[in-house]
Design a protein around this nucleic acid. Structure first.
Lengths: 204, 204
DNA sequence: ACCTGAACACCGTTCAAGT
DNA sequence: ACCTGAACACCGTTCAAGT
């Protein structure tokens, strides 16, 4: 009872994001309406407009929870391997892919290009930029330690990001399904693919 | 006059796909309605149902034109470098990225995960599989010629595909914009990133 | 300050009807 | 065979009104 009444005390925003995230993960962005989210939160269909300017703004809020989760997992993965940039890179990549496999529809909302830019609220861009900077940090450390080749650090980071992002995308859209069935198979495949990046495709 | 009346002679499907592709490229999938496509083709809003079971089926048709275009460009790129797998791989990757840069919203429809599967019409999956087989062919050739390292050919191909796909995704969603502004800058960056994959990230 | 309910323009889909 | 127009349930958004 205190929970329902508390919706009127300032946490309806949270309740909407929670209900929205759940609905997105169940049915995919395309099949989630603002009205359905409002209903799931137990509120009229115009109430969300007190907390979000727009349906798009609400979706951005849901995506933001996904980015928070991603940043958190990557941080944890990196902290597991202090002073070992190669393992840090690998663990960060795996964490990235893992999120895409476990929450494919949320990942799709985050990276599928459904969200409009809106320019005003660029918190999402900031968040993704922050994740990239973490990656750059790992590469820079590895270059200093002499395990990664020299060269433009940002470019090497972007290479790693592209690979992981592409793999995650293929995994979350189901393109990999008939090549690697279960989650473990996909993660194992991700590991081997990551190794190919480290070694390079060209013959030595 | 013969053009409008010809809509009644069997090519309305084509006209819808053409109008639909144009609308998607202009406004993005999320802002294209079946009714608007019908209107743009000069026909009532229920006419499309004679040619597509569904809005999703129409979108799949539009995506298919994109996949045809992609396959065509990759084929051309490969034929430009007979007997040179390294250049073939690079050219195919550039063609892939180029399409994403030139037609970001179409690319987003093709790979953004908006399309439902529907199982019955898996022509899209076939088409993407076909493109992948072309890639595998290039890698296999390069392994025989001794320019690519030995190992599971499918895995090496998947590595290259992931990288290119991820880069294209980042390019088409605008994530790369504040790192590489124009199209040429992006393509140049794509080249350097592709080279990092060939050489590998690890120090030799 | 925060939420509701009616209203508006638009949407995807179905169906009887027209040629 | 191919297309139309009315109809239905649903949607995003606005706005006056309630507490």
């Amino acid at each position: 009872m205190s929970k329902e009444s508390s919706y009127h005390h300032g946490n309806l925003r949270e309740a909407l994001l929670e209900a929205g995230t759940k609905l997105v993960e169940e049915k995919g962005v395309a099949d989630v309406s603002l009205r359905a989210v409002a209903k799931a939160a137990g509120v009229s269909h115009t109430a969300p407009y007190r907390h979000f300017s727009d349906k798009n703004a609400m979706l951005r809020g849901i995506a933001a929870t996904g980015f928070r989760l991603l940043a958190q997992r990557i941080e944890e993965a990196v902290e597991l391997h202090p002073g070992n940039p190669e393992l840090q890179l690998s663990a960060a990549g795996v964490a990235y892919v893992e999120l895409a496999i476990e929450h494919p529809r949320l990942h799709n909302l985050m990276f599928g290009g459904v969200l409009q830019d809106d320019a005003v609220d660029d918190s999402l861009e900031e968040r993704s930029d922050q994740a990239f900077k973490g990656l750059v940090g790992i590469i820079a450390l590895g270059q200093q330690a002499g395990v990664f080749r020299r060269g433009d650090t940002d470019e090497l980071a972007l290479t790693a990001w592209s690979l992981v992002h592409g793999f995650a995308m293929l995994a979350s859209t189901g393109t990999l399904d008939h090549r690697a069935g279960g989650q473990e198979a996909k993660l194992a495949l991700a590991h081997r693919v990551a190794n190919h990046l480290l070694s390079g495709l060209a013959k030595r």
